[in-house]
Design a protein around this nucleic acid. Sequence first.
DNA 1: GATTAAATTTAGATTAATCTAAATATTTAA
DNA 2: TTAAATATTTAGATTAATCTAAATTTAATC
Lengths: 218, 218
Amino acid sequence: MHSFTEENYLKAIYHLSDQNSTEVTTNAIAEVTNTKAASVTDMLKKLADKKLINYIKYQGVTLTEIGTKAAVNIIRKHRLWEVFLVEKLGFKWDEVHDIAEELEHINSTALVDRLDDFLGNPAADPHGDPIPDRTGNFLHKKLLKVSEMKQGQAGTISGVNEHSSVFLKHLEKLRLTLGTKVKVTELIEFDGSIILAVDGIKELTISREVAKNILVIL
Amino acid sequence: MHSFTEENYLKAIYHLSDQNSTEVTTNAIAEVTNTKAASVTDMLKKLADKKLINYIKYQGVTLTEIGTKAAVNIIRKHRLWEVFLVEKLGFKWDEVHDIAEELEHINSTALVDRLDDFLGNPAADPHGDPIPDRTGNFLHKKLLKVSEMKQGQAGTISGVNEHSSVFLKHLEKLRLTLGTKVKVTELIEFDGSIILAVDGIKELTISREVAKNILVIL
DNA sequence: GATTAAATTTAGATTAATCTAAATATTTAA
DNA sequence: TTAAATATTTAGATTAATCTAAATTTAATC
């Protein structure tokens, strides 16, 4: 099996290539793993030796098929544990990330598959992120950032792009949680902030920064 | 916090001093942790620096109060996870040890306490071992090895001294599981094996080795 | 009580993951 | 299209946990 650290690199590379759909750079990995570029280079060599990534010096990396499978499996575990923490243990959606970050490295296929069944084979985690099934398949819903919505457009909040406790608590306070219906009432030219109608009633102004991190399905 | 490895040493020392109620030796620790005596010595110095053990060169070790608390907490986590795996996920009692061995190192008091509540604050794990409460207190029931029972004596199986899958599967096959009532019908002088009446009906012969690892309450 | 045996510790190396500083490659932009 | 800026890699060290082999201490035995 792969070490705790290797798994974290694979996960980081997966998330980064998911966002940018191109080769992932050394610096980008260093940033999300809280390490230095030199450390990343060392690890990339190791992951390449293990055939988990395609790596050409100075050219960035992509995951191999094996690497992708490994990464998806970690993500599956992370998201299932998050569901467990929220649905069964009563944690709030802003409290589960760090714990799931540890639990995702527990190594037992039997455990994960049984957990999946115990939870009723959920399709998404508490933040709306889709959960891969035991074969590694999962659907990417096409979600739109609120910051990309046009005036007059309406949608249902179905995900977030930022999982920090601070951000999630803020959404909670604004009642902008999963399943909430929002409609863009007005786009403010000055600073890009957006006025929303929430559940057809309340009017609410959110900053562009917040809008970029809320995802809706139309 | 303590590293994964440090935690395993603390747990090992705890279990060993629980059995022998005297200073724990370097070699004994090396054996249960699957390392060499030299490695143990290194780690003992480190644990002593951290005030987790009382260590005098060549004299063996005992846990300090802090060390004991840390060890008991790991044991609490291990046993709660075992209950979860059996009660909620449907694992058998012989399948959970290795998984719990990983889960016990997950670091979150909130998680453990919520898990405890979710499971209904169980008093014992699937092998009958008592579970410490959140303050670290737990009752040691006075259990007797079947090998120490006298002829004619009866009791209820309430624990085991050996947690290997092989042994537990064997007990399962013999239907000598927790809660089963047994009575010593005959002690065989030749090899120390014992004939039991099980639930007042079936007669069963078990070896001395097996008898040593089954615990009853009278 | 001296000598042998066993247990423990020390010395010196190794491996995984990390770092800083220096060297090299790539990209940007004047 | 070359110089400057940025990104990446290499070189050399460090820390935690481990090891083997040698030295030392304690325990056992004659």
